[in-house]
């Protein structure tokens, strides 16, 4: 399908003998925010780390099943090529401490040794920082170290770093859980803006956040995908009893 960015079919993932994800089937359409919800330890992080194949870096980790990124088999691609097409933002902001704000944004090019003329780099930096709503705050301090920014600003810098590579999809693992409410709402507004250009897979523990920003939601429980569909529908008339219990705070 033209409109599908990520397709997950009969996908399982394990750490050694411990099967974490069980037969996941999921289709993420273009230009949406897809929320991944579920109780702690259910396998949300594992699932998104399978999308950019960071999961397999852990000794003993294995996967089975299929994942495709715009009709390309993820597990047949070179990981380093795949990862340039898939942006990732972590729970804790992690700008590179030795690099300036400017260098952080273009880190994906710089560290990969991709040579680009300076005016074009300037443009990438400006556009990426504008997209991540950080430009106005840092445009006069581009050559200061990224670690001098506030936590929320650092996280937006990390989002800009991922956006600079023009990814097909962005993986966001609880990107606001280490931030204060104001930075959180800034970043939430950002997601709504960003989805015009990029698809986002957002892991969140915050049910209200999923309701505010996501178009589709997946509910995972003990490694199984219990329910997947439009956020509005799931939040108003959940099909599964476990989804309902989670949404009403009975567990999680």
């Amino acid at each position: 399908m033209e409109n599908t960015v990520l397709k997950v079919e009969n996908f399982s993932a394990s750490f050694g003998d411990n099967r974490i994800l069980k037969d996941i089937n999921l289709t993420v359409p273009r230009n949406v925010v897809a929320a991944l919800m579920g109780p702690s330890g259910c396998g949300k992080t594992t699932l998104i780390r399978c999308v950019n194949r960071m999961h397999e870096l852990i000794p003993g980790a294995t996967v089975s099943g299929r994942m495709t990124l715009i009709d390309e088999d993820i597990y047949a691609m070179q990981p380093i090529i795949l990862r340039r097409k898939v942006g990732m933002v972590f729970q804790k902001p992690n700008p590179f401490p030795t690099m300036s704000i400017y260098e952080n944004v273009i880190a994906g090019y710089k560290l990969n040794g991709i040579r680009i003329p300076k005016p074009e780099l300037d443009n990438i930096v400006e556009q990426s920082l504008k997209k991540s709503a950080l430009w106005d705050e840092v445009k006069d301090a581009l050559h200061r170290k990224g670690t001098f920014l506030s936590g929320g600003q650092q996280q937006r810098l990390c989002i800009a770093r991922a956006l600079a590579m023009n990814p097909e999809i962005m993986l966001l693992d609880e990107p606001t859980s280490a931030l204060d409410p104001k930075s959180t709402s800034q970043i939430e507004e950002l997601f709504v803006e960003l989805k015009k250009n990029v698809t986002m897979l957002l892991v969140t523990h915050n049910i209200a956040q999923a309701a505010r920003v996501s178009d589709v939601t997946a509910f995972i429980y003990l490694g199984e995908l219990i329910e997947f569909g439009p956020t509005e529908k799931m939040f108003t008339v959940p099909k599964d009893k476990r989804t309902e219990e989670y949404l009403t705070g009975k567990f999680g």
Partner: peptide, 18 residues
């Protein structure tokens, strides 16, 4: 911190360059 290494790997940077 390990998360710096992950940040780099997640950008598609090969291990030795990381």
């Amino acid at each position: 911190p390990y998360h710096l290494k992950e940040a780099s790997l997640a950008l598609g940077v090969p291990y030795y360059r990381t």
